[in-house]
C-alpha cells in the first residue's frame, strides 16, 4: 500500500475524499472495488488520527457505510434471474451520491472561475466593507427573520439573571403601548433598540416587544428599515393620541 500524504483541509468531506481515491486508483465509479477503497479510506482516517487531527463525525459515518455496503455484497443474493443486476447493487446509492457530488464540485470550480466583482472586474462603486447606514433611500419592509434577530440581540444583551425574583411586578401591555405611542408623538420614527433601555428585566423586554407587535397589528406603527440588516425603525402610520386608545388587557388577550 502506498503512503498517503494527508492534508485534511484539502478534503471538504467524505465524498470528496472518496472521489479522490477513486481518481487516484483509476477505479471505475460504476464498479467500485469496495474492499480496496474501504481499506485506503480507513488508512487515511488512521493517518489523520495519528496526526492528532480531529476526524469529523461524517468521515467516520462514511467508513461505517462502506463497511456496511461491503457486508451486503458478501451476503448471498436472493437469486432472481430476471432482474438481479444493478437494481439491488448495494453500491448504487453511493455511486449516485458520488456522481451528484462531483457535479456540484465541478460547478463550484466553474463558478469560482467567473470574473468576480472587485477581484477581476471593477465597477465605479465598490461596495465598501463597512458602509455607513444611509438614510436617504427608500424604506423596505422588515422581514420576520430580521425582527426576530433584532429581538434576540436585545435578549442576549440582557441575559436571564441567575437569581429568583420574588416580587411580582405587574406589567401591562396596554400601558406599554401607550408609553410607546407617547414616545412616538412628535417623532416620525423611533429606532427599535432605543425602546429597550439598558439593564432592563427580560419580562420588560417581552412586554415591550408584545406592545410593538400589537401596534403593528393595529396598523398604528410599521417596522421599516433602510437596508437589509440596517436599523429597524418604528414608524407611525396614523396619528393617534394615547388617550384615544381604548384597549383593555382583556381585549388584547394578555390579562
Amino acid at each position: 500500500m502506498n503512503l498517503y500524504e494527508v492534508h485534511l483541509d484539502n478534503f471538504t468531506g467524505p465524498l470528496d475524499l472518496l472521489l479522490h481515491l477513486i481518481k487516484k486508483n483509476e477505479m471505475d465509479i460504476y464498479d467500485i472495488p469496495i474492499a480496496a477503497i474501504t481499506s485506503q479510506y480507513l488508512e487515511i482516517l488512521d493517518a489523520m488520527q495519528t496526526l492528532n487531527l480531529d476526524v469529523a463525525g461524517e468521515f467516520l459515518l462514511m467508513a461505517a457505510s462502506l463497511v456496511h455496503v461491503k457486508s451486503r455484497l458478501l451476503l448471498p443474493k436472493v437469486v432472481d434471474d430476471e432482474s438481479e443486476e444493478d437494481e439491488d447493487d448495494p453500491r448504487a446509492e453511493l455511486v449516485r451520491r458520488l456522481l451528484e457530488y462531483q457535479k456540484y464540485k465541478e460547478a463550484a470550480v466553474a463558478l469560482d472561475e467567473q470574473p468576480k466583482l472587485n477581484q477581476d472586474v471593477f465597477s465605479r462603486f465598490a461596495p465598501e466593507p463597512e458602509v455607513l447606514e444611509k438614510c436617504d433611500g427608500g424604506f423596505v419592509e422588515v422581514s420576520l427573520f430580521d425582527l426576530l434577530a433584532a429581538l434576540q440581540d436585545v435578549l442576549r444583551e440582557n441575559p436571564e439573571p441567575l437569581f429568583h425574583t420574588v416580587d411580582v411586578e405587574q406589567l401591562s401591555v396596554t400601558d406599554r403601548i401607550n408609553a410607546i405611542m407617547s414616545r412616538l408623538q412628535g417623532h416620525q420614527s423611533l429606532a427599535f433598540y432605543d425602546l429597550f433601555p439598558d439593564k432592563v428585566e427580560r419580562s420588560d423586554i417581552v412586554v415591550t416587544f408584545l406592545a410593538m407587535l400589537e401596534l403593528v397589528r393595529l396598523r398604528m406603527v410599521r417596522f421599516m428599515q433602510n437596508k437589509r440588516f440596517g436599523t429597524i425603525w418604528l414608524m407611525t402610520s396614523v396619528e393617534v393620541t394615547p388617550d384615544e386608545l381604548e384597549l383593555g388587557e382583556e381585549a388584547l388577550g394578555y390579562s
Partner: peptide
C-alpha cells in the same frame, strides 16, 4: 453581482455526467 451573472439562468451549465478519467499522476489535492 459578485459573479457577474445576468440572472440565475446564466449560471454555467451543469455538467450532468463526467467521467472520472483524471490524469492519475497528480499527487494530493493541490
Amino acid at each position: 453581482e459578485l459573479f457577474g451573472l445576468a440572472d440565475l439562468a446564466s449560471l454555467p451549465t451543469l455538467q450532468e455526467f463526467s467521467e472520472l478519467t483524471e490524469d492519475a499522476g497528480v499527487d494530493g489535492m493541490s
